[in-house]
Design a protein around this nucleic acid. Structure first.
Lengths: 207, 207
DNA sequence: CGTCGCATTGATATCGCTCAAATCCGGTGG
DNA sequence: CCACCGGATTTGAGCGATATCAATGCGACG
């Protein structure tokens, strides 16, 4: 196990770590599928897992991208079945935390229960930020909103983790539209771009 | 206080009820504003409260509509400032639960902490459902998704609570588009409509 | 070297948004 | 009781932005 993995793992209370098991999934492997009975909650140690649903037309909708340190399926803890599909989009190392044991721990350890609630609240705020973003009408506004929301520093710097195509889907745009929008924003000098690093030039008020 | 209010109130543990205070807000009154320090979490006893943010262009984005029995600002419990505006869209009676006391209660009462976590998880699933909906490309798909997701029974019946205009904003559509879409869906026989009651005729597989 | 997926750009069509106007409806005041 | 008002509900017309289809370059990988 890498040092990074250890660091991630250490964010959990010992009690949880003792419950958990380390598992690995090759790229493209499903961790669970929609409708499967809920057996565990997961934390990503390394790699990436995507939570998605598929529409009848086969279009994939990514609900969440879980990166190292992040949890997923945590909203399913008190349901009987998973409500979406989890697929390792990169080779992934996961910490598998049995649901039953976690539930018991939540009943015993109030400190951990508080942390858990805070985790859920954070996810909820994040989901609402995405909602706000998707309700914006134009592509440029969504990009700006993303940078304002997720970016760091006065220039709202963002280091994209995946491909632009992935990002486009997260923004609810066709990837071609995103390319063009970025190009236009660079053209106008509003946006700075070097590979996967984006930043705003003229910083305007937060959304 | 009405019988309904009592029933709502009874869904809370006594310990919380003892902390809470009943307050009323006339239609249009702000309960709190974005940036205000977090003093309380709320449960709606009667009426309706909307949580919204305003874009720089003045457009309102409704993040959540809280109806009787529902909580709001619960995701702000462990933050220092509210991240959106709460406005009574109808005359509203609320239960105001001081944040500090609630935090203490969460540390003491494990049973309540579990309920609280379940509440957050429910909200999270709901937000993700909305996310899924907004990422759909066409107006008709969003309407179908809404009915499939929120509707009851095999025909996905839904009783709209507000105006169609409100619903349109929740779906991320211009109201004119929603009117036309509904009209076309009725035209094609896919949708049944009687005032605020909607239902699907030919039920197809869930999204 | 061939293949595959991402990145990019072009052309076109579609769909939703915007502006406009007419109607309906509930509530209010004379 | 009736006139009037504001907001919701429709419907129309036109524009523009985005999705879609297509083609090309490019880099990674076997």
């Amino acid at each position: 196990m890498s040092a990074i993995e250890s660091a991630v793992r250490d964010t959990l209370p010992r009690a949880v770590r003792d419950l958990a098991r380390r598992v690995e999934y090759p790229k493209g492997t499903p961790v669970f599928r929609q409708g499967d009975p809920v057996r565990a909650v997961f934390q990503v140690l390394g790699g990436e897992v995507r939570l998605a649903r598929f529409g009848k037309d086969g279009a994939e909708l990514v609900l969440q991208r879980a990166r190292p340190g992040e949890f997923f399926a945590e909203a399913s803890l008190d349901t009987s079945r998973y409500h979406c599909n989890a697929i390792a989009s990169e080779e992934a190392a996961l910490l598998e935390i049995p649901a039953r044991a976690l539930r018991e721990l939540l009943d015993e350890d109030t400190k951990f229960a508080r942390q858990w609630a805070a985790l859920l609240a954070r996810q909820l705020r994040s989901a609402r930020a995405r909602l706000e973003r998707l309700s914006l009408g134009s592509a440029a506004e969504r990009v700006r909103h993303y940078l304002n929301t997720e970016g760091h520093g006065t220039t709202c710097e963002v280091e994209l983790s995946g491909s632009l195509k992935d990002w486009a889907r997260e923004l609810g745009l066709a990837h071609e539209t995103l390319y063009r929008t970025l190009a236009r924003m660079q053209e106008s000098g509003e946006l700075e771009r070097e590979g996967a690093a984006l930043s705003l030039k003229a910083h305007r008020k937060r959304v």
